[in-house]
Amino acid sequence: MRMSALSLMLLLLCAVQLCAAVLGRSHPQLLVERSGSRRLGKVGGFAWENCGDRRDPVVLQSLSVAPDPISIPGSLRVSAAVNSGKTMASPLKAVLVVEKALGDLWIQLPCIDQLGSCTYNDVCTILDELIPPGTTCPEPLLTYGIPCHCPFKAGSYSLPASDFVLPDMELPSWMTNGNYRVRAVVSNGGEELGCVKLAFSLQSQ
């Protein structure tokens, strides 16, 4: 079931062209999708911002997630838009730093079973393992013309509000209820392509 969690994360990465765990608070209404970033100003609740150099070719333009906090198991509604000024090709490296709030402290979580603060040396290879080349991309990527394999061509990509089912992922005890921050950097050949920071709350049942 942990592979299901990784699969969802990578599919969303494919959808928005950036490595971002997309999580989020318990009202059923949707968050308003915004242009620019929703600043990471407080602990608790979903927020995001671009954190790369202004010259980074890949920029997250909007992202909304509901419910907030995210509930596992449960359903997740995500919408996103990304602009990529450069084709993203293999090897596409993704580095995640995941922190959890413990009182007033933020503790960096280790990489265990491909969860936590992990480095993925080639996301393209992982996507090929999850979705064999030559097979049809899964919904909703297929409907909205979003590729699920490298290379990702330069251009604008948009995922309208779409629902995903989050099964019981059997998350480890150190990655359950609480407030989290994630910094995700995607690069190719040492060149940073994009960087995103996320803040979210997680609630497991």
Rank of each mutant, 00 (worst) to 15 (best):
L31W: 10
L31K: 11
L63I: 08
D53C: 10
R38E: 13
G36L: 07
V32I: 11
I72E: 11
W48E: 05
V43M: 00
S71G: 04
R34N: 10
R39M: 09
D53Y: 05
P57D: 06
E33F: 05
F46Q: 14
S62F: 00
V59F: 03
K42W: 06
V43P: 07
G44T: 02
G36N: 04
L63N: 01
V65W: 01
Q61K: 15
A47V: 00
I72K: 04
G36R: 09
C51T: 08
A47N: 07
L63R: 05
L31H: 12
G52H: 13
L60Q: 04
V43K: 08
D68F: 07
V58Q: 08
K42I: 06
P73Q: 11
P73E: 11
P73V: 10
N50Q: 11
P67S: 05
R55A: 15
V65H: 06
V32T: 15
C51S: 09
D56C: 12
F46Y: 10
L31M: 08
K42V: 12
D56M: 07
L60N: 02
K42M: 12
F46A: 15
S71N: 09
I70F: 04
A66C: 03
A66F: 01
L63E: 06
N50V: 13
V59Q: 14
D68V: 10
I72R: 06
F46D: 02
G45I: 02
I70C: 14
D53K: 14
E49I: 00
E49V: 05
I70Y: 00
G74W: 05
S71H: 10
P69H: 02
D56E: 15
F46C: 01
V65A: 14
L40P: 01
S37A: 11
G45P: 06
P67H: 12
V43R: 13
S37F: 08
R55G: 14
R54D: 13
R54I: 02
N50I: 08
A47P: 03
L63H: 08
F46K: 01
V58S: 03
V58Y: 01
N50P: 03
P69N: 11
G44R: 08
G41E: 14
V32S: 13
R39Q: 13
V59N: 10
V59G: 01
G52T: 07
R54C: 01
G36T: 13
L40E: 07
D56S: 15
G52E: 07
S75G: 09
L60H: 08
R34I: 14
P67E: 06
S71F: 02
V58H: 05
S75H: 10
K42T: 15
A47H: 11
D53R: 08
S64Y: 00
V65M: 06
P73F: 07
P57N: 10
